[in-house]
């Protein structure tokens, strides 16, 4: 009783001060909100600029860079870019590398993660540590020897080189994600199955595989973005003019026509459209995936 009273008095004395504080922060709140909004607009100007630029003629892009009207709208850039960039060929190559590599990453990463999470042996722990340590290696640091390797393996200039190398470089992170996820699953899940004489294969396929959907989504998004957006590997391994990926095609296309902004913007838009569309529908998973990897990594 006494205590309650004291407390009440306490809040009363501080009350007026805090109220003033709150009023003062209302202006601060509004200013903060306006600042945030302005910042968002500034950050979005480049995106707005290239999206509308893809639908404008060059003279309009230069004269009125940030204005879009229906009269000046045209699809010429898009049509011309699709034709001259050989867009569908590039899309096919990027798509093949991304899908192929993702398939390998998920298949190999999940079984490796399963083994590493469930078998408590020293060797497995050491293996896990070594694999995680490999995440540190910068790709460009080994590019020189990697290209030579593809030549020796007869993989140079083939899509297989793209698929296998991308899969390998995305595997350590995938294994890391899968191991962490499976470790957190209760052991009782599979114990009954083992007692009934199930093999590890059957336990993996029948019990774990269906449970791995969330971590697989994270894995697909993380690796998918980086493989789709890759430029360096495609540039060096697939430098045959018949097998460029989207990013290489956009770059070489732009390099040839340095001043045709409309075409460059159309190329940029076309090359990033698939990821942009996926992001719009799967925003939550994208952001969760990025945060999951970073906080644990």
């Amino acid at each position: 009783m006494q205590k309650g009273k004291v407390k009440k008095i306490d809040t009363n004395t501080g009350g007026s001060k805090r109220k003033a504080n709150r009023d003062g922060s209302l202006i601060g709140k509004i200013l903060g909100e306006i600042g945030l909004l302005l910042g968002t607009i500034v950050v979005w100007i480049p995106i707005y600029y290239f999206i509308i630029g893809a639908f404008k003629e060059r003279t309009d892009i230069v004269k009125f860079p940030l204005v879009m009207t229906f009269e000046t709208m045209s699809f010429n850039n898009i049509i011309e870019t699709i034709e001259k960039m050989d867009f569908f060929n590039a899309l096919k190559n990027t798509g093949a590398i991304t899908l192929g590599a993702l398939l390998l990453v998920v298949a190999f990463g999940s079984i490796a993660g399963f083994a590493l999470a469930r078998i408590k042996r020293r060797g497995f722990k050491v293996y896990y540590g070594a694999l995680i340590a490999l995440m540190v290696v910068p790709f460009i640091g080994v590019l020189i020897s990697l290209i030579r390797l593809t030549v020796t393996l007869n993989l140079y200039n083939t899509l297989w080189a793209g698929i296998l190398i991308q899969a390998a470089w995305n595997l350590p992170f995938a294994v890391f994600l899968y191991t962490g996820f499976i470790r957190a699953l209760p052991k009782e899940l599979e114990e009954a199955a083992y007692v009934d004489g199930c093999s590890m294969f059957r336990v993996y396929f029948n019990i774990f595989l269906p449970l791995l959907a969330p971590v697989t989504a994270t894995c697909l998004i993380r690796s998918g973005i980086s493989i789709w957006n890759d430029y360096l590997l495609s540039l060096t391994v697939l430098n045959d003019s018949y097998t460029p990926t989207l990013m290489v095609a956009v770059q070489s296309f732009f390099g040839d026509r340095n001043s045709e902004y409309g075409l460059a913007f159309a190329g940029i838009l076309l090359a990033s459209l698939p990821i942009m569309i996926m992001f719009i529908f799967l925003q939550k998973y994208f952001i969760k995936g990025i945060a999951a990897g970073a906080v644990k990594g």
Partner: peptide
């Protein structure tokens, strides 16, 4: 959003 784009682009 910008983090989705390729560094090359």
């Amino acid at each position: 959003f910008p983090a989705l784009l390729s560094a090359a682009i």
